[in-house]
């Protein structure tokens, strides 16, 4: 898919079309025992510069929704539009950071991974791709590891590479599927803070999936809570900038509020 770069926020005459629009989207999987509806009738829009968090318990269809936006899955009903155009295939205008550590190409070095993505995704010539790749790798703190192969990195470092790769392509929309879920609590917090900084510096539009309420408040500007299986929209919360600071009363208050409305059982907050 070749969609306009993120600065251009209009296509044809649809002058202020939202960057991303989901229109009554349902997604189902064919299984041996019949059709499983993972996501039901979800609609929302996302404007440029926003960081929207999809929050919900495990199995509610967050990854499913994100994959559909990524173009890896087709909705069974409804439509997903980027810049007013229907999404029908994956493309480098929507870079996904996955939860799994095996999203990097093991046969390429750290630098090679990011450079290759730039060569293929943005058709940059090799020297230029390498320069951009180095820039982004040093922005995620991996300057000293450009020549390492992914299997020699820690989980957190692999996620940093994936994040660098995603940012380097300057996609219209960044998709993140619980990128920090497999990390220890301390590393996760650090990565959340660093990601937030990158997003704010670049003004990236982001769709972020998580089941952690604190993570949602920390990284999002707006939170969409989903119901348990099948996923439907339950509630929306705006996160003002001053609420985003951990340990403040506002942070705790929003956390409590979301907790009450989304998770009936308080113990499902962390899986």
């Amino acid at each position: 898919m070749n969609v306009a770069p993120r600065s251009a926020d209009f296509v044809g005459d649809a002058v202020t079309a939202p960057l991303l629009a989901l229109d009554h989207v349902s997604i189902s999987y064919p299984t041996r025992d019949g059709i499983l509806t993972a996501v039901e009738d979800v609609s929302f829009t996302l404007s440029a510069g926003e960081r929207l968090v999809l929050l919900g318990p495990s199995g509610c269809g967050k990854s499913t929704l994100l994959r559909a936006v990524g173009g890896f899955l087709k909705p069974s009903t409804g439509e997903i539009r980027l810049h007013g155009r229907r999404i029908d295939a994956p493309g480098p205008d929507r870079m996904t950071v996955f939860q799994e550590f095996d999203q990097l190409l093991p046969w390429r070095t750290v630098l090679g991974n990011v450079r290759y993505a730039l060569q293929r995704g943005k058709s940059l010539p090799r020297p230029q791709a390498e320069e951009v790749a180095r820039h982004w790798l040093s922005r995620v703190g991996l300057k000293n590891f450009v020549d390492a192969y992914p299997h020699t990195l820690s989980g957190g470092m692999k996620q940093r590479v994936a994040i660098a790769r995603a940012f380097a392509l300057e996609p219209a929309l960044l998709l993140m599927d619980e990128p920090f879920a497999a990390l220890d609590a301390l590393t996760r917090r650090q990565m959340q803070d660093e990601l937030l900084k990158l997003c704010e510096e670049t003004g990236s539009t982001t769709l972020f999936v998580t089941h952690g309420i604190d993570e949602a408040i920390r990284v999002g500007t707006r939170i969409l809570a989903l119901t348990p299986h099948p996923g439907r929209l339950a509630a929306t919360f705006d996160v003002p900038p001053d609420t985003r600071i951990r340990g403040t009363a506002r942070f705790a208050e929003l956390e409590r509020q979301i907790q009450q409305s989304v998770f009936a059982d308080p113990e499902t907050e962390h899986v």
Binding site: R67, A89, P90, P92, L104, L105, R120
Partner: peptide
């Protein structure tokens, strides 16, 4: 792994 496949297709391959 399907993640690796998706990472490749994400680049438009």
């Amino acid at each position: 792994p399907s993640t690796l496949r998706m990472a490749g297709r994400n680049l438009g391959l």
